[in-house]
Design a binder for these strands. Sequence first.
DNA 1: TAGATTGTTAATCGATTAACAATC
DNA 2: TAGATTGTTAATCGATTAACAATC
Lengths: 243, 243
Amino acid sequence: MSSSRPRRTHDTDARPSRGIPEATVARLPVYLRALTALSERGIATASSEELARAAGVNSAKLRKDLSYLGSYGTRGVGYDVEYLRYQIAREIGLTQDWPVIIVGIGNLGHALANYSGFVSRGFGIVGLLDADPAKVGERVGDHVVRAYSELEDVVREYNVSIGIIATPASAAQEVCDRMVAAGITSVLNFAPVVLNVPPGVDVRKVDLSTELQILAYHEQRKALSARLTKVDGVPAERSSVAP
Amino acid sequence: MSSSRPRRTHDTDARPSRGIPEATVARLPVYLRALTALSERGIATASSEELARAAGVNSAKLRKDLSYLGSYGTRGVGYDVEYLRYQIAREIGLTQDWPVIIVGIGNLGHALANYSGFVSRGFGIVGLLDADPAKVGERVGDHVVRAYSELEDVVREYNVSIGIIATPASAAQEVCDRMVAAGITSVLNFAPVVLNVPPGVDVRKVDLSTELQILAYHEQRKALSARLTKVDGVPAERSSVAP
DNA sequence: TAGATTGTTAATCGATTAACAATC
DNA sequence: TAGATTGTTAATCGATTAACAATC
């Protein structure tokens, strides 16, 4: 993809904040959470082995991941929990607070609006919007639901770049288009549709029934191999015995 | 990992239902949804190109994915929407209904209990459980919240193998342990903790603030490259000019 | 110094993609 | 038959893992 783009031949920057692999980026929040948990338990230093256990990964992967950020550990000792926590938070961009809006204040929107995890992790809800006039004015958590028509005003007022879509599937694309037109460049989508966005806009999808379906696939296979084990005594592996 | 395990040398089974790559399994639900949408629009046949567009992937990937299931298309023509839909549903295991329970009926539990997407996609909620006596007996959607202590009863009665955890982080591991002890072998976890489970139990995690943090990371980088573009005119790419 | 643990290398594995022969 | 499109091959890319030299 970018193979035709020339590599930089000299780089005076000791900490390459560029080029962190996506798989690593997706794990940084997990490490951050593990470090916060260790910190709350009063633990000042942790080895890659301990940290990895807390994060549910193996230590080789953790060390490789952290190496993309820089050298924040001490050989023979481990990592300073607070220091590493700060470095990861800075890398992700959580040393600032991100204003977010939620569009669609149904059951899920309610749950998201009340979710304390957002605020505690560097995000601030600055607007709840719904197209249903019956919902406008309703109090949800610390907020009052505003009219969907005020989307542009809210985005401008708070300089919002992250939007959450919690509408029915039928409305999601139009909400997304309007968010993007208003200047939002990152979208977290809970509606079960594939959103089309212009280049430069990031979309992440949380799909509840997809997750269950993936589990169902594996359940089915467990049931299948259990049945085959009973029949011909071959565990786990599917056998192909000619009749 | 399994490189020491002997490969089957002969396989009389035309459709290898084994060995579908995880990345493919994770996309099958997306294809299923795209096919359902096409079906509802009255479209009987679709090419890999059309299907791929509806699913938000490229057509090479879609064809490769489908090839793991078998040869369900017709060269020169495309795929029969209904037929392919059925084949994918069967592969995932959605030709049967999966009973699920939800533990933790807070805001999120409410939202999940009311989410129609579960039922319409092959899952049936057979129990809502909460440890808070004040919540027991409460009506949520079609269900009445039962006491957490009844977990084993519900799992046995409905032969439940999939459990959803929507409790606070502090309770999640103990709920998970109890689910597993009761016979559940697949867990969908909404609590922001890493769950420890014995081998043979699958866990999938939906982590709301992790998703936002990943978006924040990319937002930060967009803001950074925009600023650098203004300063020295190098777009997108971070430059490392000596001062 | 001896012991411990990081940061990095290199091998391996799995996923993606383009291209095209097979075939409807 | 000619045109279209699948199913598969092979090349490429990115992620994971084990091993260990560097170093506290």
